[in-house]
């Protein structure tokens, strides 16, 4: 079940209903999409706090003009008032035509922050300034598209529990050019981060026969890494003979290569009988990390999921994803 961060931002109960209705309305108006271009349906605009103070200033100037019967003061009052009106257009234009593309979200462990990558692109050649992107509770980023057509933005959002983490709607806002108006939009970029189980150290090794590797010990033979010399034995391959030494008049010597057969471990669901699901997943997660660190091969066996032993970053990712999504239905998108 996706965790909607926007709904859990701890608003009080009274405004809760309103915010739910607002979210429903938002979904209809700005439906989720991986890439969204901003147009008038999606941009909201309202005076900012300095904007309201600007009104007070205008009133003061107007009062001065009236009381001193000063036409130039009138002119300034009107000029600033129309400047405000004109700046509505400029502020709006600063967001208009921008396209946001969702790029990726890095998986994270609970309590960590996931990196959400976005691409911001402009439609024309006009410059866009001071665009602030943020997710509720996440980090924010202030970017400008002045001399480039697009840029990538990374935002960091703390993630919740295991499964898919939905960061909620992205807030894109700007007050450029005068700061008197705030122009913003809430976008659902359909971007979710995978949250792995929280790793819990456990002494009990995974698998019935413990964390002991099933594989063999060091095995000499093969031809992977040079290991050393030994005197030639009949049957050794001629390719292994150290001919240079022979040419220098030494006796025949064979080069010995060693390959370390990888050790294989199974992370087995059934190895922790009687332990709650989340805790089991946490144990398995811990061992997946530990085995990867040791450079050993490991496989995963969950009810309905079997991953053959291997190692490496991609493999680890696969295993952790399987753990993260266990009983969460949806496959990785």
């Amino acid at each position: 079940m996706p965790v909607n961060a926007a709904e859990t931002t701890g608003r009080d109960a009274a405004s809760g209903r309103f915010s739910r209705q607002f979210s429903r309305w938002l979904v209809r108006r700005i439906p989720p999409a991986r890439s969204i271009t901003l147009d008038q349906r999606r941009i909201f605009i309202f005076p900012s706090l300095p904007g309201f103070f600007f009104f007070v200033l205008l009133l003061l100037i107007l009062l001065t003009a009236i009381n001193y019967q000063n036409n130039m003061a009138y002119a300034v009052a009107f000029l600033l008032a129309t400047l405000f009106v004109v700046s509505i257009l400029h502020t709006y234009a600063n967001l208009a035509g921008l396209t946001l593309h969702a790029l990726s979200a890095t998986p994270a462990f609970p309590g960590q922050r996931s990196e959400f990558r976005l691409r911001l692109q402009r439609s024309g050649k006009a410059a866009h300034y001071a665009l602030r992107l943020s997710w509720p509770q996440g980090s924010d980023s202030l970017v400008s598209l002045a001399d480039r057509d697009s840029c990538e933005v990374s935002l960091y959002v703390p993630v919740g529990n295991r499964g898919w983490h939905n960061p909620g709607r992205l807030l894109l806002e700007s007050r450029y050019p005068l700061g008197l108006l705030r122009c913003w939009t809430w976008l659902d970029l359909d971007l979710q981060a995978l949250v792995y189980p929280r790793p819990l150290a456990t002494a009990a090794p995974p698998g019935g026969d413990g964390g002991r590797p099933e594989g063999n010990a060091v095995e000499t033979a093969g031809s992977d890494d040079f290991h050393g010399f030994r005197s030639y034995r009949p049957g050794d391959s001629l390719r292994q003979v150290h001919w240079k030494a022979v040419a220098r008049g030494h006796s025949l010597q064979s080069k010995v290569y060693a390959a370390y057969a990888s050790r294989t471990a199974w992370l087995d669901w059934d190895a922790f009988p009687g332990i709650a699901t989340e805790q089991r997943l946490s144990y398995l997660c811990y061992w997946a990390l530990a085995l990867e660190r040791r450079g050993e091969d490991y496989g995963l066996s969950l009810p309905g999921v079997d991953i053959a032993p291997a190692s490496g970053e991609a493999h680890q990712g696969r295993i952790l994803a399987a753990l993260a999504l266990y009983q969460h239905g949806a496959a990785a998108s």
């Binding site: 009236i66 009381n67 001193y68 019967q69 009138y74 002119a75 009107f78 000029l79 009106v85 004109v86």
Partner: peptide, 18 residues
């Protein structure tokens, strides 16, 4: 903003000092 300012300047009602 200037043209609109002119319109307001000539149309805005002038009242005496408050």
């Amino acid at each position: 903003a200037f043209p609109l300012m002119l319109v307001l300047f000539f149309l805005f009602p002038r009242i005496g000092p408050l």
